[in-house]
């Protein structure tokens, strides 16, 4: 398994947020985590990426305890795309993306011709090569997201962890990002773990989906098995009355209700 967990409990110091997480993700697969706001998706992702320690249990990357892997070695195996963004002042897209070469460059971070090519290739992979000379602060949210995904790619990781990558994006950028995620997993064999709010997008891009509710995993499996109307109502605490008020008496196939998210 590329990444797995053993009886993992995540939280802050002693405060447990989600417990008993046992997941296994093979190479080149996409795992999406769904859950209501505040359910602990980000805490799980931060723990899986080594940014915070587990309250209990272990995270394993190819059977090695993640927290025992040295930082510089881990950076070549795992990259992150986070929601919190610093104001990037006068940094260009090239400068931000090339920072992902941190573990691959020498003491002063001088880029070789090969490093520059890798940065260009990563920007091409996310359809962002035209942005290369622009200041990041001038980009739209969708463009920024591509830049940060390219930054993760130049680390040449086997795993990319993305926290709510589609938030604040318009429909075009959401669809584009999901297709990039799909391509990276299928063509480049990168394992991707992400949290999403859009159920339809999660179904389109994921090999597996985890549902989080009340501090535990409610369900875990293939999208068509996990995503049912009852499950979604349960995860997001939506009752029948709210449903009918929003959608009227619309009837269709099993997944019509999912359109509300995109």
């Amino acid at each position: 398994m590329m990444l797995s967990t053993e009886n993992l409990t995540v939280g802050y110091e002693k405060k447990v947020v989600v417990s008993d997480i046992n997941i296994q993700i093979p190479r080149g697969k996409v795992l999406s985590i769904l859950g209501a706001n505040g359910s602990g998706k980000s805490t799980i992702l931060r723990t899986l990426s080594g940014l915070q320690k587990p309250v209990e249990g272990r995270v394993l990357i190819q059977d090695k305890d993640l927290h025992k892997i040295p930082e510089n070695k881990l950076a070549k195996q795992l990259a992150v795309v986070l929601t919190n963004r610093n104001s990037l002042g006068l940094l260009t897209v090239f400068e931000v993306v090339s920072m992902g070469r941190y573990g691959h460059t020498g003491f002063f971070g001088r880029l070789s011709n090969k490093d520059v090519r890798i940065v260009e290739n990563a920007l091409e992979a996310v359809n962002g090569i035209d942005l290369i000379n622009r200041y990041v602060q001038h980009l739209s949210d969708g463009e920024k997201q591509k830049v940060f995904l390219a930054r993760a790619l130049v680390q040449e990781p086997e795993i990319i962890i993305m926290d709510e990558p589609t938030s604040f994006l318009d429909i075009r950028h959401k669809v584009e990002l999901v297709s990039i995620i799909r391509k990276l997993s299928k063509e480049n064999g990168i394992t991707i773990i992400t949290s999403l709010h859009e159920i339809t997008l999660a179904m389109k891009c994921s090999d597996n989906i985890i549902l989080i509710k009340d501090g535990r995993i409610l369900d875990n499996g293939k999208p068509e098995k996990v995503i049912t109307m009852d499950r979604i109502k349960e995860v997001y605490d939506i009752d029948d009355i709210q449903y009918k008020e929003f959608l009227g008496n619309h009837k269709g196939d099993n997944y019509d209700f999912l359109d509300i998210s995109v």
């Binding site: 931060r46 940014l51 930082e71 992150v80 610093n86 931000v96 992902g100």
Partner: peptide
């Protein structure tokens, strides 16, 4: 890029 990104890069 922030402490989290810096940590994730090694």
């Amino acid at each position: 890029l922030g402490e989290d990104y810096a940590k994730s890069m090694g």
